[in-house]
Write a protein that binds this DNA or RNA. Structure first.
Lengths: 187, 187
DNA sequence: GATTTCATGTAAGACGTTACATGATTCA
DNA sequence: TGAATCATGTAACGTCTTACATGAAATC
């Protein structure tokens, strides 16, 4: 049975940056969060799985001032498995989106226009926040020069920027729609 | 315990268009698929749940030429529950995205540029296909005039169009990146 | 003759989230 | 004094997908 994609998320993060579960979690937040969020608990589960599979090794590290930890790094077998998965043909690679705000918009005729407007405002603010965060990431990575592995992180951050901008543009459109519905209600 | 969002997806679809599970599935494909895909099995599970909750009623219908079926429609209690959920503050409404192609891009330094290019081409083609489908939906709904519940379906379709366009634009950017990496490899 | 449409469900099992559980150290 | 950082994991539970199971009628 093939491991779930989340296993490869953690494997990939570990390949790029070895460290403790805590470290990987922080790295994930900065990098893959906007296209493959992973919960902390799931992360630790995946780390155990990677060790069982022989795709990573963990080493207990004693610390004085901080809690003891376990540092992980990928094995050659792990890197091989990663490469194999990456090269797999994309036919089964699901792209899943679940967006409750869109659902609410779709069912907007059952809502008061004001309530919908509130939710769309929040939605827009979230998108603006994400856009700002990712723009900062892009800028930071640009400072590292035009080549190397971080270029790929830049590309995925750019993806998030473009998606956010599309979302922001959409909220403008949707606002117009609400104005029409309101006008209709009032007439 | 509050039902999962998928329950409200089905409830909402049913409110907009009563019918058999088969009918709802077809409607879902045309409308919510790009922001809240639901599997056929899950759909039938949700329909049962709606009946248990008293949010919808099912009626067995005998047919001659086709298999017997069960038609569903929402109850007043169902509509009330739907409105209540829609008005809920959005603080806990997850927006989940999982995108394997982005993950592969992020880990592009472990792939051959050609393999990545293949996957990005597929990705772009999918986005173009989705965009075309949704543009057709928008056009179809525009023919129905400027007001009414279908306006909301138009809005969500427009969202998909804008997202697809952002994706397509991004693949252009990413292509440039690959060219750089290739050039770098060759140098 | 092959494919699509119509039509519904169960079973198995993986996936993944939330809450629970703990606790020293550092910084504001 | 309160919050954030560091650090890991379990338990319970619901969610959701995939595969299995069936079969007539209509269309190309």
């Amino acid at each position: 049975m093939a491991p779930p994609v989340s296993t490869f998320v953690v494997l990939g993060l570990l390949a790029r940056r070895p460290g403790s579960g805590y470290d990987v979690a922080a790295f994930a937040e900065k990098t893959v969060r906007h296209f493959w969020p992973i919960s902390r608990s799931q992360l630790y589960i995946e780390l155990s799985r990677l060790e069982e599979l022989g795709w990573a090794t963990g080493t207990a590290v004693q610390q004085d001032r901080y809690p003891d930890k376990r540092d992980y790094e990928t094995t050659p077998a792990g890197i091989a498995a990663l490469r194999e998965w990456l090269d797999e043909s994309p036919h089964r690679q699901r792209q899943r989106t679940q967006d409750a705000v869109m659902l609410k918009t779709f069912l907007g005729s059952y809502m008061s226009p004001d309530r919908l407007a509130d939710q769309l405002r929040d939605y827009r603010e979230q998108a603006e926040k994400l856009r700002a965060e990712l723009l900062a990431v892009v800028e930071h990575l640009d400072a590292k020069g035009p080549t190397g592995p971080h270029r790929f992180g830049r590309a995925t951050a750019r993806y998030g920027v473009l998606q956010s901008e599309a979302t922001i543009a959409w909220t403008e459109e949707a606002q117009t729609l609400l104005d029409v519905e309101r006008g209709h209600d009032a007439s």
